[in-house]
Amino acid sequence: MTKERKKELQDLCLKFRHDLIDILHSIQTGHPGGSLSCTEIVTTLYFEKMNIDPKDPQKEGRDRFILSKGHACPMLYLNLAERGFFPKEDLKHLRQTDSHLQGHPCFHKTPGVELSTGPLGMGLSAGLGMALGEKLKKTDAKIYVLLGDGEIQEGGIWEAAMAASKFKADNLIAILDYNGVQLDGTLEEIMPLGDVASKFESFGWNVLHCDGHDVESVSAAIDKAKESTDKPSMIIARTVKGKGISFMEGKNTWHGKPISDEEYKMAKAELGGGN
């Protein structure tokens, strides 16, 4: 990745952080913490990696993205709007009656959303179904699934992990947003994951690591994952919940909390630059 390109993506991420805080402050609802932790991951996918065409959203053979941790959808919507799947003006109506932008991603309402999510733990299975469907159609498409670290406490994730390995779904690329914090506290306090890399390796996955806030690191890990043969890939992305806004960083209380006027001013000042 060139320095210029890296700077472009970083600037875009900063802009998305600003927009996110603007929107969530304005509507007084939504999930800032998990949206901020996946900013670089989602932006790298939509602006650097995925083969998609907003003018032809149903194009055969396109790559697909599933936000399995559906509560982080504000960051998904910011990316979709920026790519042109729907007008940016729609963003201010997030979570409001008659808006197509639901509190959790909705396939049948929002252009560009590939699967409805929200109840945690289903995205990996559905992504596996898509991956096997693409294999039957003999395309080169990749299926990307972004998982929350708290989310993988769900048993269904491990059912899918076994099945993806059995069916050799090497076109399935999961990314773990490993920020270490869930709604009620840290993962260590609530339900520790243990050695998550070894767990997926023992399930037969190609396990990779990256810095989830470094677009170049995320991009390089995805490139490696795309080379996997026979094994599905799990990219463990180290992240910080609430990244970019110091009083939100690492705080479970910012999983889903309205932003006050004072907090809004502090957050905007900290982000600086951008808009």
């Binding site: 299975s125 179904g129 898509m130 096997l132 299926i143 269904g156 059912e159 099945a163």
Partner: peptide, 28 residues
Amino acid sequence: PDRYFNVGISEFNMVAMAAGFAQEGFIP
């Protein structure tokens, strides 16, 4: 055999996988 997926004893995973197949235009 190429269109038959025995997922073992994992009903949740099976039905969620079917959603993925449907999104790909198959009839699971």
